[in-house]
Design a protein around this nucleic acid. Structure first.
Lengths: 227, 227
DNA sequence: CGTTGTGAAATAATTCACAGCA
DNA sequence: TGCTGTGAATTATTTCACAACG
């Protein structure tokens, strides 16, 4: 029953925050801070300090009571846990606006991510260069995966192509996919999928903005909620 | 005590899924489906059916037992709740690779989002056109916000500029921000912030990939993890 | 019938609050 | 003294399971 469950027991919510701590620690290190409290780290990562301590307690006892955490040491511990000891190589599928932007993104290196290849289905894009990468045909996907040894993939195609691309990625051996196409992908259970949907994010913001607006036109003389 | 709490009582987790349902319903409508079960909707949105029913129950009783949900009607109900009755106008700050890609993104319209303006600090970019929008100076931000009536903003700048941009947005009256810069923003409590961090998403995938790899070199007679 | 809507149970995540330690 | 690490309490979310109902 519990075979597929989180076997080393780091909660998902914690795992999702580890990259934020890593980023914050890198910043603190660059500022010359050798040690930081959970309060510092919390501020730098944008969460509260209780959650930082609880999260870190899942990794081990790396702090010193009365002092705080050694910035460099804690960073290396988290890097080990998330497997950032060497860069993760990623293939970007889709060389349109978004795919190109990601291929050209300068921020990946410092975060342990290396773009290994860019592929697309459009013959007009194949052979062009985006972010220093020559775009290869999506038909070569299996070769590309084998040659470069990538283990992560980003889908940056129109939604209509996304499922086909995902199937091809899985067939090529990829088991971790970050999908920017706004569509639900059907994938085997052993493939790990994360989704980024910009329009959805904006709608969530819209919901709250909407409520704020409704609330402020609320106080003035109670009018029955119609419908 | 409970003044700041979710006053209409739709849980955050539910709000975050409403845009997915909306997208799924639009697709189903386009396929000519007039009615769908929670099972259908769950498949199209990529969640399970119990959660769909629970989520929708927070909005009201819009289904018919034994039949399902009227696709068009349910879509209009959700659209009303998230305030998608008219398009949300958004200003994009940063006309680099990512900002341009977002400005050119064709998928916003159907999701109720309209890019109203693009601004940047770089004089070389001001006056150029991205995605049909003439890039204006960030110094005109207050004017732009006033003229266009935007209420949502996207930050697509380098991390070092993000806090300054956020402050300027807040000063201009913006209360909903989607931040793509990998940095924690310090903002007043009444400003709603969502964060997209691509490198962090990849690290989360990396964590699981890492564990998978460790687990599979686990069963075969324990050999130390080489390199 | 088949499917919704929902209480109740189970699970997960956050927050509290403080003992324990450098 | 000051800050970590952590049980316990709280709150949030998911899942179950089934009565209600068109």
């Amino acid at each position: 029953m519990t075979i597929l469950r989180n076997p080393a027991g780091i909660p998902d919510a914690t795992v999702a925050r580890l990259p934020l701590y890593l980023r914050a620690l890198d910043e603190l290190a660059q500022q010359g801070k050798g040690v930081c409290s959970s309060e510092h780290l919390a501020a730098a990562a944008g969460v509260n300090s209780a959650i930082v301590r609880k999260d870190l307690s899942h990794l081990g006892s790396y702090g010193t009571r009365g002092v705080g955490y050694d910035v460099a040491f804690l960073a290396s511990q988290i890097a080990t846990v998330v497997g950032r000891t060497q860069p993760w190589e990623v293939v970007i599928v889709g060389a349109g606006h978004l795919g190109s932007a990601l291929a050209a993104y300068q921020g990946f290196g410092a975060r342990g991510v290396k773009v290994a290849a860019v592929v697309d289905a459009d013959p007009r894009l194949i052979g062009t260069t985006v972010g220093g990468h020559v775009v290869r045909s999506i038909d070569e996907l299996a070769d590309v995966v084998e040659q470069t040894g990538v283990s992560l993939a980003i889908i940056a195609t129109p939604p209509a192509s996304a499922q086909g691309v995902a199937d091809a990625l899985v067939a090529a051996g990829i088991r971790s996919i970050l999908n920017f196409a706004p569509t639900a992908l059907r994938l085997p259970d052993d493939v790990d999928l994360r989704q980024v949907d910009v329009a959805a994010e904006l709608q969530i913001l819209g919901y709250h903005a909407h409520r704020r607006a409704a609330a402020s036109s609320d106080a003035p003389a109670g009018e029955a909620v119609t419908s």
